[in-house]
Design a protein around this nucleic acid. Structure first.
Lengths: 247, 247
DNA sequence: CGCTAATTTGACCTGGATCAACTACGGTGG
DNA sequence: CCACCGTAGTTGATCCAGGTCAAATTAGCG
């Protein structure tokens, strides 16, 4: 596995370069951040609603999500995160968590002390701006999710989510050829889309029946890319990726 | 009207102080920002999806909202904004808009050139951090809206929205005694909650029937505060207001 | 091979959408 | 002061997307 030998901060660099450009000096500064690498099992809460966190969590491998639980077990997932993401970057300026961060799959993460991040962003305002921008893209994704929840059908919503997850992974080299990992359950999809797991299953069966997708053993294959994009009315600009992806 | 005589940047100072604290030096630096004050009529698009913006828009008076239009007139409102808010602060680092910003009521706004904002945040990293934090609170509100859309009933969702709008206004001194302005239509409420205007109306009628609220001539009166909070399962901590509000 | 979690299917139900009037109200002009 | 008009709010009737409950069936995994 490449991740065993590569520099733990490489996924972060790669992610930032998918959104923006980095100078050699900036890259070097980021690479010198102190990290504590840790392997985590699946379904593990990393930080919980109400916790005061003192580290940021950089994903090296695996999937994480942010979520909140409301009365009697109802769960809402806000976002899915993959290698290179720092899902709790906001804790740098809002240390008390107002939601949970957890692994969905087994994952490898690197913890970076807030102090080191503050020091880095103070010494390099340009890096601070890039991190800030990253949290703004995060918010842009929330807005798109709001559109999906408020004004799109279950079918279109799931189509949209699949497009988003494909693009996010493609941007860091994890997706290719209309095929990408999707290592999450239908219950996770339901909690992210605000649907019931039963209905998610029905929509997936319909998509399969239409020959639109294949979804087996944690792998999504998009067999009818144009139809999927069209159903979702997907416009990748909200992801604010640096490179325009021609598909 | 007080706003005719007071310094145009006072609402911003007041807003920031509801979230954080400002040193005298910081306050002075913010007050010296160049602004172009402008009066706008209601229902006016200030910046549109796709525009490249070169100014930030600070609200001095009135209500604004951010929204996106999807196929055939379906509209999703993401947020409501009041005096002191800079609803397009994100344009500082993501200049191409991925949504619209518009007035809901007649409003007075101050435009601040991006250049001046960049200059300010470079000279005062501490102010940059506070603005960054403000955009993070914005994202926290999006997350709460996602919970409302995904996992709450129409009744609870509207109850939650009323609590939020009351708290936001109270924090800057515009609400008091369970009574606050709500100068928006039921269609606006529908587009914010992902409901139909008809259903919003039915829920409001129910709330009135229960003696929970009064909503007349753009004024919301919360007659049963505890019940409203309870229905909404409202926990104000996601607003990250500096002062704990005891009610 | 056996256990558990995940997916799938069926039957039935309901919250909220849609469509179509109708009413109230804040201007505005005469 | 009133008649008129356009916007916003209200109500009824009907429909359907998606929820709920419960019971298989299948897939992974130790």
């Amino acid at each position: 596995m490449a991740s065993d030998v590569e520099h733990p901060l490489l996924p972060l660099i790669r992610k930032l370069e998918s959104l923006t450009t980095l100078s050699d000096e900036e890259r070097a500064a980021i690479e010198s951040l102190p990290v504590k690498v840790q392997a985590l099992r699946a379904q593990w809460d990393i930080v919980r609603d109400g916790d005061a966190s003192s580290h940021c969590c950089l994903i090296l491998e695996g999937w994480l999500c942010r979520y909140k639980i409301i009365s009697e077990g109802k769960r809402q997932i806000f976002s899915f995160h993959i290698a290179g993401d720092i899902p709790d970057l906001q804790s740098l300026h809002i240390p008390v968590m107002d939601h949970n961060l957890a692994t969905l799959t087994a994952a490898t993460v690197a913890f970076i002390p807030h102090a080191a991040m503050h020091d880095l962003t103070t010494r390099f305002p340009s890096i601070a701006a890039k991190f800030w921008r990253d949290t703004l893209v995060d918010a842009a994704i929330f807005r798109e999710w709001l559109v999906c929840m408020g004004r799109r059908s279950a079918f279109d919503h799931l189509a949209h989510l699949f497009c988003e997850l494909y693009f996010k992974q493609e941007a860091i080299g994890l997706a290719d050829d209309y095929c990408c990992p999707l290592p999450i359950t239908q219950v996770d999809l339901a909690d992210a889309t605000g649907l019931s797991n039963v209905h998610v299953n029905r929509v997936l069966m319909t998509m399969r029946g239409m020959g639109m997708i294949t979804l087996r053993s944690n792998t999504l294959i998009i067999k009818a890319w144009d139809e999927l994009l069209q159903a979702a009315e997907f416009d990748a600009s909200y992801l604010h990726l640096r490179k325009r992806i021609a598909k």
